[in-house]
Amino acid sequence: MIAMLASLGHRSLDFFKRLGRGSLFLLRVLASLPSLARRPGLVVKQIWATGVLSLVIIVISGAFVGMVLGLQGYNTLVTFGAEESLGLVVATSLLRELGPVVAALLFAGRAGTALTAEIGFMKATEQLSAMEMMAVDPMRRIVAPRFVAAIIAMPLLAAIFTAVGVLGGYFCGVGLLGVDDGSFWSQMQAKVLLIDDVVNGVVIKGLVFGAVISWIAVFEGYDAIPTSEGVSSATTRTVVHSSLAVLGLDFVLTGLMFN
């Protein structure tokens, strides 16, 4: 019993220690952001690496999620004779929830792990140390551009995911199941709101999820134990922690936004 309590205590202490280290790290990252103004090229290159290279998985998953929404939405709506609203159902569920959340989970798996593994490997092979000795601050040269790039890329990917998803829903609903083309789009046009749905959903959630994932990913990489085992467990932690953080934050954000 005592041993259990003690181990619980140790675990929570470890958790808070880590959280503290992570927060200090975040402050250092934020402090090195201004230097990026002089080197925008570094950020652009990382947007390509984290964003553009994630496009394939985002587009394919978006299409399938949209198609499934089209099928399931139709089956439910048709029992009420409301299948005309399929466009609205597909668009709102993608814009408000599925777009940002699923895109974020995929992004954590595709780009977050790559960030952690890359930075962790650079640490393990003393590349970060060598940069320090060359008077190049790795926080500015390596960490900050990756952090910013992921935050920029995430809402864009969520938007692309959503757009492709709507097309997938259209393909299933209108193309396969015979929902009226005009009402699919006009219901969507009439009921989807710019601020409530698009900004709140894709933009704000996308930015928040992007910030959390990239914070976790770069911190885990930078904080990794510099061995192959250390880097691999840091990569695992990135996926687990950022997925949980995305799902938890989504609940909080939804509660705040759509209440």
């Binding site: 490997f121 650079m122 092979t125 003393e126 590349q127 140390s129 060598a130 320090e132 000795m133 060359m134 008077a135 190049v136």
Partner: peptide, 28 residues
């Protein structure tokens, strides 16, 4: 500023793995 006047040769070399030799030397 001080470190610009110091060089260090790491045991592993610690070359930047995604750059060619030319770019590695050009890096600083």
């Amino acid at each position: 500023a001080h470190r610009k006047r110091m060089g260090m040769l790491f045991q592993s070399g610690a070359l930047l793995t995604d750059l060619t030799l030319f770019e590695n030397v050009a890096f600083p």
